[in-house]
């Protein structure tokens, strides 16, 4: 999501009065980078396959009334890749440990794409510390016969263009020069994403059996024009998670939080207020 920062500059920034703190904490032997900012009930944001570590405009907006915690997953960005880091289940247990270590209660868990998948893997294991769950264009499920693009064969340009409905955002992002450090971060994130999701590709064949265990209010946010994970998956999650509600963002691709930050922040704030 380092690349997403560029796109956000093109959209009106929300009130960014709350500056985040950059922290490193060690959990399960893994030195982990996190951004924290704001006060209130915690919102734990789980980034997608392209990585995290950026203070997104919707976070700044939400930080008026919530504490935002946005880590980089083990293996991604500035976080370590520990020996135990083999699959998405390892990350799920890691985050349950993180919640415990940070003594978080009533957590609003929000995950985008691969982070959405991770959020469900956490929630099927335990919702004890969760107040709500929000999935954004989440991976994790597989609908037989429904073709999905092979994102690992996409060029960087194809992958960037496919993120957005509004190609001006893609153009802007692609126009940014890529520093050596940034290129290395992209490679590291790509490695990490492959490690978690190469095969089966971006899903856990057993996850669907246990989504019924999720017993906290669940919102499913999806860009209507998502080219990474089609909207049929929003419906499938809604069928499998009791009481889950789908909300679509029109003229919007895979990242509503980046492409439509105002509308997204409003929808998320409204949902977590009701869930709290």
């Amino acid at each position: 999501m380092a690349r997403e920062t560029a796109a956000q500059e093109t959209v009106a920034l929300a009130d960014a009065a709350v500056a985040p703190r950059e922290e490193y904490i060690t959990i399960d032997g893994c030195k982990t980078f996190l951004l924290r900012g704001g006060k209130g009930q915690p919102v734990l944001f789980l980034h997608g396959a392209r990585g995290g570590g950026n203070w997104l405009p919707f976070m700044a907006k939400l930080a008026d009334s919530h504490e935002i915690i946005a880590p980089e997953h083990p293996g991604f960005g500035r976080s370590d890749a520990p020996d135990w880091w083999d699959n998405i289940h390892d990350l799920a247990y890691f985050y349950l440990d993180l919640i415990k270590t940070l003594k978080l209660e009533h957590v609003h868990l929000v995950g985008s794409s691969l982070g959405g998948w991770l959020a469900t893997e956490i929630a099927v294991r335990s919702t004890a510390k969760l107040a709500s769950l929000t999935l954004i264009g989440a991976a994790g499920l597989h609908i037989k016969g429904l073709a999905r693009p092979d994102t690992f064969l996409w060029t960087q340009e194809e992958a960037t263009r496919a993120l957005f409905h509004d190609q001006a955002l893609a153009e802007k992002m692609l126009g940014q020069p890529v520093s050596d450090e940034e290129l290395e971060r992209q490679m590291k994130n790509r490695f990490a994403a492959a490690r978690m999701s190469w095969a089966p590709r971006l899903y856990d064949p057993h996850l669907h059996k246990w989504l019924h265990r999720i017993d906290v209010p669940t919102a499913i946010f999806w860009g209507k024009q998502d080219q990474y994970i089609p909207t049929a998956y929003a419906e499938r999650f809604a069928e499998l998670i009791p009481g889950a509600q789908v909300q679509y963002f029109d003229k919007c691709g895979h990242l509503p939080q980046v492409e439509q930050p105002e509308a997204f922040a409003k929808a998320l704030e409204s949902f977590i207020r009701r869930a709290a």
């Binding site: 690992f152 060029t155 050596d180 290129l183 290395e184 490679m187 994403a193 492959a194």
Partner: peptide, 16 residues
């Protein structure tokens, strides 16, 4: 190149 060098096949330095 995406087909030739999937992530992890070679070191980040050489892939870069």
């Amino acid at each position: 190149v995406e087909m030739l060098l999937p992530p992890g096949y070679t070191s980040i330095q050489s892939m870069k």
